[in-house]
Design a protein around this nucleic acid. Structure first.
Length: 270
DNA sequence: CATAGGTCACGCATACGTAG
DNA sequence: CTACGTATGCGTGACCTATG
């Protein structure tokens, strides 16, 4: 099952899952795992997704699929379309760069679920109505990606609706993200056993508690990075990182770039 | 017996200092 | 900014325990 036109492409297939060639596309590429897990490789590290999680490849990123279970679901979007959506949504970042992390979001899951059901009932390949459906879907997904896909265009972490006691923790973390936290403290806020808490947190958000906090710090720090000329060190310290080296390391993992490179690539020109 | 809820141990990812 | 080395403590599969 494949639908494509000049704006992008929608692909869903249950066979030919063993493809293992290097690809480098000019488009943004969302990969969603509806069933089990998927693994991908880039020149600077591997990525894996569990059920219901997704990640987004930025244009021109070399990548290779390592494995997929049961079903491959991916959508490609041309930068021009995403740029237009960003503009209409009032996002300043002209060419958003998405974080290379797997993430879970209920609304993205719902969207994928809807598209899957629709496509499995209607045979649309090559038809006029298929094109119409595709264009609309791509626009919708662009909006979702910009809204919920963590990346350079955000200075916070995407909002999610989840369990009440998890929400307590998220609120507390957002308020004092630049302070020290341990898993025990978070669990205390949630009034839960720390093991239960960690499990629940992970299943709700697709990210484990401490990683969430780290990522939140990183996204909050982006604004200063892109809009001020403060030193990397002071930005790192202000946002709760204890050293530049851990800040650098996290940045490398998320964007495959160091903070300096990220600033030069996305930031305001002097 | 099946299912859900709770707990834990320990491998390994991460934090962070030092040196280059 | 990168490349280590080390200590810390997080994450999670696997195991218990209650419940029906």
């Amino acid at each position: 099952m494949i639908l494509d036109n000049e704006n992008g492409l929608l692909l869903m297939r249950h066979d030919g899952l063993e493809e293992r060639t290097w690809r480098s596309d000019t488009c943004y590429k969302l990969i969603f795992s509806y069933f089990g897990r998927g693994a991908y490789q880039t020149h600077s590290g591997d990525l894996s997704i569990e059920k219901d999680e997704f990640f987004i490849f930025n244009p021109e990123i070399d990548h290779k699929q390592l494995s997929v279970t049961q079903e491959k679901f991916l959508v490609e979007i041309q930068p021009s379309l995403l740029r237009e959506a960003a503009e209409r949504m009032g996002i300043k970042q002209a060419e958003p760069e998405f974080a290379l992390i797997s993430y879970k979001h209920p609304q993205v899951r719902q969207w994928v679920s809807f598209i899957r059901d629709f496509l499995s009932i209607h045979e649309l390949s090559g038809s006029i109505s298929g094109q119409f459906f595709l264009d609309n879907s791509l626009t919708q997904l662009s909006i979702l990606m910009l809204q919920f896909g963590p990346g350079s265009h955000m200075n916070t972490f995407p909002a999610v609706k989840c369990e009440a006691n998890i929400n307590l923790v998220l609120t507390a973390l957002r308020e004092s993200y630049n302070e020290d936290w341990t898993l025990d403290q978070m669990a205390m806020v949630a009034r839960m056993n720390k093991y239960q808490f960690a499990h629940m947190f992970k299943s709700e958000l697709g990210v484990s508690p401490y990683s969430w906090l780290q990522l939140y710090r990183l996204f909050r720090s982006q604004y200063s990075l892109l809009n001020t000329h403060e030193s990397i060190l002071s930005i790192a310290l202000q946002h709760g990182f204890k050293s530049v080296s851990s800040y650098n390391q996290l940045f490398k993992k998320v964007y495959r770039k160091t903070p300096g490179e990220f600033r030069r690539f996305n930031g305001l020109k002097k």
